[in-house]
Nucleic acid binder design. Structure first.
Length: 412
RNA sequence: CGGGGUGUCGUAUACCGGUAGUACGCUUGCUUUGGGAGCAAGAUGACGGAGUUCGAUUCUCCGCACCCCGACCA
C-alpha cells in the first residue's frame, strides 16, 4: 500500500485522556480511534494487525480440530434464565435493551448458552463426541470503569472456543491439546518468552482454572512465577494449601505484574445439564456432555504486544502480527531516478507485504513515522542506492542495518 | 458503584471577571530535502443549560463527557 493513499495520519502528541502506553502509541500511529471510554474502532493499520493475530489463533484452533462458526451478539433472555445468568444480581455487566416488538435482549458477554443450545440439535450419541467449536466475536461487557486502553474495554474481540466431550477423561485429552495450542499461539505472536500458564481460581468443577499471563508492568493481575518450570500462580490462589497441591513453595516463586491474555476452564456439566445437552452412551444410558471453554482476546493481545515490545520511539511488531512486513522508504527528494527505483521495488515485492512511503515529506518525518508504526523491516532507497546498487534493510527491533541488492531483497 | 479530578482551535498546552496566546497540524507562495526544515501570508477554539455580574471561557449550581484511585471483572 502507498502511504500517500493511507487516510490515517500519525501524530506527535498522545491524547491527554489516554494514560495507557498501548492506547497512546496505537492512537499516535493511527491504528485505532477512541470512540468513548473503553470503546475503540480499528483503523486500516489496526485491522490488518488484529486480523493477523486472529489468523494465527485460527490456524492453531483448526489444528486441534476446532470448527469455526459465528453466533449472534443478541441473546435470548429465556435461554440465559435457564442457567440463571440473566438476572442482574447474578451477572451485573450486561448491556440490556428491548425489542420494539416487546421483550428484552442483551448483548453477549460470552457464549456458553447459545452454543450449548445449538449443540443440542447436533449431538445425540457418544459417536458425535468430542467436538470443539469456536468463533471470533465482539463481546460486550458493561464495565463500571474501562481502563488500560484497548486491553479492557466495554466491547472487545474475543476468540471463544467450547469443547464438548463424553466424560472427564475425554475432556482432559481435549483440554490438554488446546492448552498446547495456546502455548503455540503465544509463541507465534511473539509473547512466548513472557507468557506463563498460570493457576487461578477454578470455579465449581476443578480446583484451578488456567490463565495465560504475560509479564508486564501494565498488567492488572499479580502472579507468582516459577521460571524454571515456566508456570505461575495467580495471587487469588496463592496460599500454602494450594501451593502444596501444586508442588510449589513460596521460596521458588517470584512476584510479577501480568496481563491475562487467555484462559481455559473446565465447565463440567454446568451448562449441559440445565440446557439438556445429553448424549446416549455406549451402554444406552443418557449422560450430560462435559464441556470446557477457552478464551483469547485478540484485541487485548494486540495491546499486550504494544505494552511489552515497544520502545521509546514507538511500536515494535513481531513479524507474525505486523500490518506489513516491509516499510519501503523513498528518500528521493524529488529525484525521479531514485523515486522510480523505489517504485519498481515496490511493484516487485509481494503485493500486500509493503507499506511504501511515497510521500513528499522529509526524511526525518518518514523515519519518525516508521519508528512509530513499528513495521519490522525498513527498506531505504536513497542516493546511495543508485551509486552502490544496494538498498538498506533496517531491523526495527534491533536497529541492525544490512545492504542488500534488489535480488537479495526479493528473496529475503 | 464510592472517592478525587479535568473539560480552551484538529492535537498538545498557556493566560485571564473586560481584545483568548503559543507549538504542531491545515491552506497559499518561495526555498529546502538521510532523522519530525526555513521564511512569509492565512483559516480555525472556551462541553451543554441555568444563575451571579454592567460584563462569564474564568465564579456558583445542574447536566453530560473524560481521566485517576478503589470496588467489580463468569
Amino acid at each position: 500500500m502507498r502511504h500517500s493513499q493511507l487516510f490515517t495520519k500519525t501524530r506527535r502528541d498522545a491524547p491527554s485522556d489516554e494514560e495507557a502506553k498501548n492506547a497512546q502509541l496505537l492512537i499516535r500511529a493511527g491504528y485505532v480511534h477512541k470512540e468513548m471510554a473503553g470503546v475503540y474502532s480499528y483503523l486500516p493499520l489496526g485491522l490488518r494487525t488484529l486480523n493477523n493475530i486472529v489468523e494465527v489463533i485460527r490456524q492453531e484452533m483448526n489444528a486441534v480440530g476446532g470448527q469455526e462458526l459465528v453466533m449472534s451478539a443478541l441473546q435470548d433472555r429465556a435461554l440465559w434464565s435457564r442457567t440463571d445468568r440473566w438476572d442482574d444480581n447474578k451477572v451485573d455487566n450486561w448491556f440490556k435493551t428491548e425489542f420494539k416488538s416487546g421483550g428484552e435482549t442483551g448483548l453477549a458477554i460470552t457464549h456458553e448458552e447459545p452454543l450449548t443450545r445449538i449443540m443440542t440439535d447436533h449431538i445425540s450419541s457418544y459417536r458425535d463426541l468430542p467436538v470443539s467449536a469456536y468463533q471470533f466475536q465482539n463481546k460486550f461487557r458493561n464495565e463500571m470503569r474501562a481502563k488500560s486502553g484497548i486491553m479492557r474495554g466495554k466491547e472487545f474481540l474475543m476468540k471463544d472456543l467450547y469443547s464438548f466431550s463424553k466424560d472427564d477423561e475425554e475432556h482432559t485429552q481435549v483440554y490438554t491439546g488446546i492448552r498446547e495450542a495456546y502455548i503455540k499461539v503465544f509463541e507465534r505472536l511473539g509473547l512466548g518468552e513472557l507468557t506463563y500458564p498460570t493457576f487461578a481460581s477454578g470455579g465449581i468443577f476443578s480446583p484451578f482454572s488456567e490463565e495465560f499471563q504475560t509479564i508486564s508492568e501494565a498488567g492488572e493481575d499479580t502472579i507468582y512465577v516459577h521460571e524454571g518450570k515456566r508456570i505461575a500462580v495467580n495471587k487469588e490462589v496463592y496460599g500454602d494449601e494450594n501451593l502444596a497441591k501444586l508442588g510449589l513453595t513460596k521460596e521458588e516463586l517470584v512476584e510479577k505484574k501480568a496481563i491475562e491474555v487467555g484462559n481455559i476452564f473446565n465447565l463440567g456439566t454446568r451448562f449441559s445439564e440445565p440446557l439438556n445437552l445429553m448424549y446416549t452412551a455406549e451402554d444406552g444410558s443418557k449422560k450430560p456432555v462435559v464441556m470446557g471453554s477457552y478464551g483469547i482476546g485478540p484485541s487485548r493481545v494486540m495491546g499486550t504486544i504494544v505494552e511489552t515490545l515497544s520502545d521509546e520511539k514507538g511500536i515494535v511488531w513481531p513479524e507474525a502480527v505486523a500490518p506489513f512486513r516491509f516499510h519501503l522508504i523513498s528518500l528521493d527528494g524529488g529525484d525521479t531516478t531514485i523515486a522510480s527505483y523505489a517504485q519498481d521495488l515496490y511493484r516487485e515485492l509481494p503485493m500486500n507485504s509493503v507499506l511504501f512511503d511515497d510521500r513528499d515529506v522529509r526524511a526525518g518525518e518518514k523515519f519518525a513515522d516508521s519508528d512509530l508504526m513499528g513495521i519490522p523491516w525498513r527498506l531505504i532507497v536513497g542516493k546511495d542506492t543508485l551509486a552502490s546498487g544496494t538498498v538498506e534493510l533496517v531491523n526495527r527491533a534491533t536497529g541492525e542495518v544490512q545492504k542488500l541488492t534488489k535480488e537479495e531483497i526479493l528473496v529475503f
